[in-house]
Simulated assay, not measured.
Amino acid sequence: MKRLLFLIVVFLLSCSSTPERDKNVFENVSAKQAQTIMEDSSVVVLDVRTANEYNDGHIKDALNIDIKSENFMDEMQKLDKDTTYVMHCRSGGRSAMALEKVKDFGFKKIYHMDGGMLEWAENNLPIEK
C-alpha cells in the first residue's frame, strides 16, 4: 500500500511539472541587451504596435503583428515556436500584455524589450522608416 501511494505521489508530481513549459524563456531585457541578442541572425524582432506606428519607424526587419488587431492570436499561432523572438511595442505595456497572451502557445524563447521603442530611440539605436 505504501509503495502504491508513493508511486501515485511521484506520478502526480511529474504531471504537475511540464518539461516543455519549464524550458521556455520569457525574459525582460533593455534595448541595449536586445540589440546584442539581435546580433544572432536567427532572432526575429516582433513589433506588436499598430501599422502606423511601425511605418513611422521600426527596427530593421521587424515583423509587425498588431496586438490590437482581431487576428493577433491567429498570427502568433502561425509563428515558429522554436525561433527566438525579441518582442516590443512603444514603451513596453502592450508587448507585456502580448507576452502574457502567448506564454502558453509553446514558444521556446521570447525576450521582452521592456522599454520599447522609446528606450531604443533614447539609446540612439538604428531605426528604419
Results as ranks from 00 to 15, higher is better:
residue 17 S to D: 07
residue 75 E to I: 07
residue 42 S to T: 15
residue 65 I to F: 03
residue 83 T to N: 04
residue 116 G to W: 00
residue 102 V to W: 02
residue 125 L to E: 09
residue 2 K to M: 15
residue 84 T to K: 08
residue 101 K to H: 10
residue 42 S to V: 05
residue 81 K to W: 00
residue 121 A to K: 15
residue 21 R to I: 10
residue 108 K to E: 06
residue 47 D to I: 00
residue 68 K to H: 13
residue 113 M to Q: 07
residue 56 D to E: 15
residue 90 R to A: 14
residue 87 M to D: 00
residue 23 K to M: 05
residue 38 M to F: 05
residue 124 N to W: 06
residue 52 N to C: 08
residue 125 L to G: 06
residue 84 T to P: 03
residue 16 S to L: 15
residue 38 M to E: 04
residue 112 H to D: 08
residue 88 H to S: 07
residue 39 E to I: 08
residue 42 S to N: 14
residue 33 Q to K: 08
residue 57 G to Y: 06
residue 104 D to Y: 10
residue 126 P to N: 06
residue 24 N to I: 05
residue 65 I to C: 01
residue 30 S to R: 06
residue 77 Q to Y: 07
residue 49 R to G: 02
residue 83 T to F: 00
residue 89 C to T: 03
residue 8 I to E: 04
residue 129 K to Y: 11
residue 102 V to Y: 02
residue 61 D to C: 06
residue 83 T to M: 05
residue 122 E to K: 14
residue 78 K to T: 05
residue 100 E to Y: 15
residue 54 Y to C: 06
residue 48 V to A: 02
residue 120 W to M: 02
residue 51 A to I: 13
residue 22 D to C: 07
residue 51 A to M: 13
residue 46 L to D: 04
residue 4 L to R: 12
residue 64 N to I: 02
residue 16 S to D: 06
residue 48 V to Y: 03
residue 116 G to N: 03
residue 64 N to E: 11
residue 88 H to E: 04
residue 89 C to V: 02
residue 106 G to D: 09
residue 90 R to D: 09
residue 114 D to T: 15
residue 114 D to G: 11
residue 47 D to M: 01
residue 77 Q to G: 06
residue 110 I to A: 01
residue 11 F to P: 05
residue 40 D to V: 08
residue 25 V to W: 10
residue 25 V to H: 07
residue 81 K to Y: 00
residue 49 R to V: 04
residue 114 D to P: 06
residue 71 N to A: 09
residue 37 I to R: 01
residue 3 R to Q: 12
residue 113 M to G: 04
residue 77 Q to C: 02
residue 66 D to Q: 07
residue 57 G to R: 07
residue 29 V to K: 07
residue 122 E to R: 09
residue 17 S to H: 08
residue 61 D to W: 13
residue 12 L to S: 14
residue 98 A to H: 04
residue 119 E to P: 03
residue 74 D to F: 08
residue 60 K to R: 15
residue 83 T to A: 05
residue 121 A to D: 14
residue 114 D to M: 13
residue 8 I to M: 11
residue 88 H to V: 01
residue 107 F to K: 02
residue 102 V to R: 01
residue 18 T to E: 08
residue 40 D to F: 11
residue 91 S to P: 12
residue 41 S to F: 10
residue 114 D to Q: 12
residue 72 F to N: 05
residue 110 I to K: 00
residue 56 D to H: 12
residue 30 S to T: 13
residue 123 N to M: 05
residue 112 H to N: 14
residue 42 S to F: 01
residue 35 Q to I: 06
residue 123 N to G: 10
residue 127 I to R: 08
residue 70 E to Y: 10
residue 128 E to K: 10
residue 67 I to Y: 14
residue 42 S to D: 14
residue 93 G to P: 09
residue 88 H to F: 08
residue 114 D to L: 13
residue 107 F to G: 00
residue 14 S to Q: 10
residue 129 K to W: 03
residue 117 M to H: 11
